[in-house]
């Protein structure tokens, strides 16, 4: 449905010089897909979306939308082909959720802006699609950030365009709302064959929900399914040698420096991996199994955690991981976090 050929995005500078943000971009996307735009901060994700939404001009190259060049669609035609949800908050006003969503019918209504039955249907179905019917008469200033973001997406849907562009649709949202917004978009793209192109910093969610990723770096660009890009380690430059990597089945893995003090850990409780994680964060090197000679041994049994001190020959029980860590920091001066 959309093809980018050697597209150059950025801003014009004085005397005809242009400031290209990225290498020329050549991407494609087809109807019914969720396409996620990924790249480091400032690489031009928003600029690309704004260029595709015709909010700013391209510096070079071509974009074809349904076979025709982007700029050759008339203003009215384009408004029925492509809707856009810009980044950031909605300007403050006293409109209701329903009125905000109804704004999307602009290209279909007459000079008075009066909604026909067809328009009303489109508004109601968009509200329904994003579970906003119960909120429809609330003012947009009174609802939560997640609800407001859903309102803005519903507004784009009510415009009934085959292409929907969204700049950071999951910004300002908590985790359940992020998941829900992306899941709704995914359902709608599959059911109605819409193409969603959106940018996001939520790599984990993106890799789970996007059919295709447009990955942009200042000097190179890649496209493909998330797995295509993962297996080539193409996301690594995003983390700039911090050692963070995406591991299959585990999600984002954050490496920790090896601790100076060593503890051993054993037991059959489900608590074990949680205790291990907490100890690693507190700066201990954790060895699984019971080995003599390290000095400290931690055993997790059912709901209880026991700390055995071989040198002082004591055994203390704890009911929470927090109290265990607190005790260890207090009683072992050689504790690496304290030094």
């Amino acid at each position: 449905m959309i093809t980018l050929e050697e597209l150059k995005i950025g801003y014009w500078q004085k005397r005809g010089k242009d400031l290209s943000l990225t290498a020329p971009l050549s991407f494609t996307a087809t109807a019914g897909e969720m396409v996620g735009i990924v790249g480091p901060n400032g690489v031009g994700k928003s600029t690309l979306l704004r260029t595709l939404a015709r909010q700013q001009e391209a510096l070079g190259g071509t974009v074809r939308l349904q076979g025709k060049e982007l700029g050759s669609w008339s203003r009215q035609e384009f408004a029925r082909l492509c809707s856009f949800v810009p980044a950031g908050h909605l300007p403050v006003n006293r409109l209701t959720v329903r009125e905000t969503v109804a704004m999307a019918r602009y290209p279909y209504t007459g000079w008075q802006g009066r909604l026909s039955r067809r328009d009303e249907e489109a508004v109601v179905s968009a509200l329904e699609g994003l579970r906003l019917l119960a909120l429809k008469d609330k003012q947009v200033g009174e609802i939560s950030d997640g609800e407001r973001q859903r309102t803005l997406i519903a507004r784009a849907l009510a415009q009934e365009t085959p292409l929907v562009l969204l700049d950071e649709p999951t910004a300002f949202l908590d985790i359940p709302n992020r998941y829900e917004v992306l899941q709704r978009m995914r359902d709608i793209s599959k059911q109605e064959g819409k193409l969603f192109i959106f940018s996001s910093h939520d790599l984990e969610f993106l890799l789970e929900t996007a059919d295709k990723i447009w990955l942009i770096y200042p000097d190179q660009a890649h496209e493909g399914s998330p797995e295509d890009l993962l297996k080539e380690d193409l996301f690594d430059p995003l983390f700039r040698n911090t050692g963070i990597r995406y591991e299959i089945g585990r999600g984002l893995h954050i490496p920790r420096p090896a601790g100076e003090a060593t503890v051993t850990l054993s037991g059959d409780s489900a608590l074990l991996p949680w205790v291990e994680k907490a100890l690693a964060r507190a700066g201990y090197t954790v060895l699984r199994g019971k080995e003599k000679g390290t000095g400290w041994h931690i055993r997790a049994e059912k709901e209880k955690i026991f700390l055995e001190d071989e040198i002082r020959d004591t055994k203390t029980g704890f009911s929470s991981i927090y109290s265990l860590i607190l005790y260890m920091k207090k009683h072992f001066p050689e504790n690496p976090s304290a030094s």
Binding site: Q55, P86, P91, M103, Y106, P107, W111
Partner: peptide, 22 residues
């Protein structure tokens, strides 16, 4: 006569542009 346009401007110019307003 400008009410429809003015109402659309309440959403901000980026939105107004995206629904096809000149």
């Amino acid at each position: 006569l400008l009410i429809k346009q003015l109402n659309t401007l309440l959403m901000g110019e980026a939105y107004a542009h995206s629904v096809g307003m000149d």
